[in-house]
Computed example of a mutant assay.
Amino acid sequence: MIDTDGDCADWTFPAEAGAVRAARTAVRGRLGAWGLDSLADVTALLVSELVTNSLRHATGPIGLRLVRPAHGGVLLVEVSDPLPDPPRERVARPEDENGRGLQLVAHSSRRWGTRPGRGTGKTVWFELAVPK
């Protein structure tokens, strides 16, 4: 983990099955240290969905970044991978086992989106409102 100024935390996980669990653990630990335990469950769930998407569709390392809000506001969460194609939100049928991750992110977050990565790849981000 790289923690530059106490308000930002970055991790890089290898593209392997243990990445999802490691990402959830990292998120819960950092949010607890920041006193944002109330956001831990939803943040860990959404990070799990995005890291799982990266594992399924991309090869190479998966980046995770949390940015703590300066004065209340929002928690910014970013998941990056080397695949340049943005994820596609799709409508899953009731019998489908996959395809609901981005719907969950869209429904549970304040805002979300994608942007090209630095050099290669992409970043999928979402914001969660910090309870007052």
Rank of each mutant, 00 (worst) to 15 (best):
S109Q: 06
E127G: 07
A15D: 04
G99F: 00
D10G: 11
K122G: 10
R100T: 11
A129H: 09
E16N: 07
P14L: 03
G18V: 05
P14M: 00
G18T: 08
S109R: 03
V67N: 10
H107R: 14
N98P: 13
D85K: 13
G113W: 06
R118H: 11
L104D: 11
E95H: 13
T120E: 15
S80L: 10
I62S: 02
N53C: 09
S109E: 06
G119T: 04
H107Q: 14
R115S: 07
R30I: 07
F126Q: 01
T59F: 06
S108C: 15
A17Y: 11
R100P: 02
L128Y: 01
D10N: 14
A70I: 08
H71E: 14
L76M: 06
H107W: 11
A106N: 08
F126P: 00
M1C: 12
G101P: 10
R21S: 15
E89A: 14
A44S: 15
E97V: 15
N98L: 14
G18A: 13
P131L: 09
A58Q: 03
D3I: 08
S38P: 01
D81Y: 01
E89C: 12
P86W: 04
L46K: 03
P84N: 12
A22D: 15
V79T: 06
E95M: 12
V124F: 02
L83V: 05
V42C: 06
E16F: 03
P84E: 15
S38F: 07
A22H: 09
E16S: 10
T12E: 13
